[in-house]
């Protein structure tokens, strides 16, 4: 859509705008990375240095040896992956049921599911806590996995429903006519076409589980079961702030999610465009 006559000023405006946007979005990350690679004395130096004069991994070493960060990291991985597996399993099956079988009340159910999306965790955290207590699941990872799964479900169901709906019924029927069992038809015909949706749903679920603070704060008390957000917040509160080390923790937490996003950005924008994400 370039307009040749005004091309230059237009390009300048675009690049200036782009630079400002990049600075606003990414500079805090750059500053986090830079601080995490500085020695303590340089962290507090005035004037501050943009790029560390002496690169050091000392902050990361301290983080991994002197704190429980590695444990929190492991816990977060466990909980997040378990949540992804459970959520995808439950929501794929459910969404398939919603699109391929007719039964009375189907649309009502779908609308009701969307309605639960309107309830923020903070609105149900109290009874949720009491319920988990009654089930004897307080201070277990299972409680976290169940809560994240529940809060990801409405979104994933709707997202996958949209994807399944977009897979032409005829394709599946053709496979069935050819004598394939329904399971095989789904496996070979429907899932491959809905895969971008499944990946997007998986990513969103992972991010939600990886980032959650409230449930982890309320449901987990033992240090050895804590996930990253609460663990790092405790680390931040428990000592004189060791900014280098805290920034190292930030870098370590950010890497997996940024990596994921970079890898599957394509799927993501599509999935996003078709549903929206909680947060």
């Amino acid at each position: 859509m370039s307009r040749p006559r005004r091309g230059l000023s237009r390009a300048t405006a675009l690049y200036v705008g782009g630079a400002v946007l990049a600075l606003w979005a990414a500079f805090p990350f750059f500053w986090m990375l830079s601080t995490s690679l500085k020695e303590s004395s340089e962290v507090f130096a005035s004037p501050p240095t943009l790029v560390p004069r002496h690169l050091t991994l000392g902050n990361f070493a301290r983080l991994l040896t002197e704190t429980n960060f590695a444990t929190y990291f492991g816990n977060s991985l466990t909980v997040s992956f378990a949540t992804v597996v459970l959520t995808l399993g439950v929501s794929a099956v459910g969404a398939y049921g919603l699109t391929r079988f007719r039964f009375p009340g189907r649309e009502t159910i779908a609308a009701l599911i969307l309605l639960t999306y309107m309830f923020a965790p903070i609105m149900v955290i109290i009874p949720f806590y009491i319920l988990v207590k009654q089930l004897g699941l307080v201070n277990t990872h299972l409680a976290l996995v169940l809560s994240y799964t529940t809060f990801c479900l409405p979104f994933c169901l709707w997202l996958l429903r949209a994807f399944f709906q977009s897979v032409p019924l005829e394709l599946e029927e053709a496979a069935l006519v050819d004598g394939a069992h329904r399971g095989r038809a789904v496996w070979h015909v429907v899932l491959p076409l809905a895969l971008p949706g499944i990946i997007a749903a998986g990513i969103f679920t992972f991010i939600l589980a990886w980032n959650d603070f409230l449930f982890a704060l309320v449901l987990i008390s033992s240090d050895e079961l804590k996930t990253l957000p609460v663990g790092v917040n405790d680390l931040f509160n428990a000592t004189i702030v060791d900014w280098g080390m805290i920034m190292a923790a930030g870098v370590m937490i950010t890497l997996p999610t940024v990596g994921f996003f970079a890898g599957v950005q394509r799927y993501l924008i599509r999935g996003w465009g078709s549903g929206g994400l909680k947060g």
Partner: peptide, 26 residues
Amino acid sequence: RGLLRGVVLFPYTIPTVVAVILWKWL
């Protein structure tokens, strides 16, 4: 443009606790 589209996403993907600590530092 492609890179910038990715970069702009970053802040949304990190845990709130990291965003808050980062800004407290800035």
